[in-house]
Design a binder for these strands. Structure first.
Length: 289
DNA sequence: TACCAGGAGAGCG
DNA sequence: CGCTCTCATGGT
């Protein structure tokens, strides 16, 4: 096999659902293959029946970074078993079988979700793409693909001006992104720290950053720091909880948060991602009424 | 056109 | 705590 290619055996892995469920914003599908960038490597992923075919430019000696990002070694069945056994959860789990929670780079995840507030997923993708092109490093391209760019580092963002960032269509989120980048480059925020803290302390740490509230903090805890019990409540998930679990009475945001803490178990974040993807893709009309 | 989007923060009672 | 307003931009 060529040095830039490998085959990753997988089971219970729905690559499309995983890459298109609003946890990452830099992946595109074309004729059955997904292309994106992990760290400084452009990657093309092609799912087959029981594996993922992988292609990346240049020689590669080990693939830990890829298995880590894709979380291919996680036994999905043992996670699904911890979901509550109620009708809504059974429906969501059945509808999204193979959906995984990725393990992303903390900075890229944090920055992306700072940009996500009150934005549609298509728009977040556009903002992130502009950021990469204008402030990231150009990378060796995959055969047949346009040039790719790394996600700009905190240093690269910190050296930009607010108006340059606003030109990437991020609007009022620009000062928050800039402040976060500067906190990191100035040594006032340690990206490694949340990795070693209990979930609630890590959450508080992230919320020191301007533009990072409970929801965005929970997204970063779940998608980057591996806190599986973090349960981000956005408009879609709030709607899902309201309609599926409290159809008769109106529940406050705080009530929903508290319910989620106790109801979904140790992998609540996984359950949340299933509910989110289910509501957005499989059951859109239910979201309307 | 009017409304909404993987929210957060500030002001108010 | 709970409510309301603003922030910027694009899709539907």
């Amino acid at each position: 096999m060529a040095p830039g290619q490998t085959t990753l055996p997988v089971r219970d892995y729905d690559l499309a659902a995983t890459l298109d469920s609003g946890q990452v914003f830099g992946w595109r599908e074309r004729s059955g293959s997904w292309t994106g960038v992990i760290g400084c490597r452009p990657v093309r992923l092609t799912p087959t029946l029981d594996a993922i075919e992988v292609e990346t430019p240049g020689p590669v000696t080990q693939w830990d970074w890829l298995a880590g990002f894709l979380q291919t070694e996680v036994r999905l069945e043992s996670i699904l078993q911890t979901f509550p056994d109620d009708p809504p959860m059974r429906r969501a789990a059945a509808a999204c079988r193979g959906l995984r929670v990725l393990r992303q780079d903390p900075w890229e995840c944090l920055a992306s979700f700072i940009l996500s507030s009150t934005k549609q997923i298509v728009q977040i993708r556009q903002i992130v793409a502009l950021l990469r092109e204008r402030f990231g490093d150009p990378l060796a391209a995959l055969a047949g693909e346009p040039p790719a760019f790394s996600f700009p580092s905190p240093e690269q963002i910190a050296s930009a001006t607010e108006s340059q960032l606003r030109e990437c269509k991020m609007g009022f989120r620009a000062p928050s992104l800039l402040a976060a980048a500067r906190m990191i480059t100035d040594g006032h925020f340690d990206l490694q720290r949340p990795a070693h803290l209990p979930r609630l302390e890590a959450r508080g740490e992230l919320m020191r950053l301007r533009g990072v509230g409970p929801k965005i903090a929970d997204c970063v805890l779940l998608f980057a720091y591996g806190h599986d019990s973090a349960f981000p409540v956005d408009v879609w998930v709030a709607r899902a909880l309201q309609q599926l679990y409290f159809p008769r009475r109106r529940a406050t945001e705080k009530r929903l948060q508290k319910f989620a803490e106790t109801h979904f178990g140790p992998h609540a974040g996984y359950a949340q991602q299933y509910l989110f993807h289910y509501m957005r893709t499989k059951n859109p009309q239910r979201a309307a009424d």
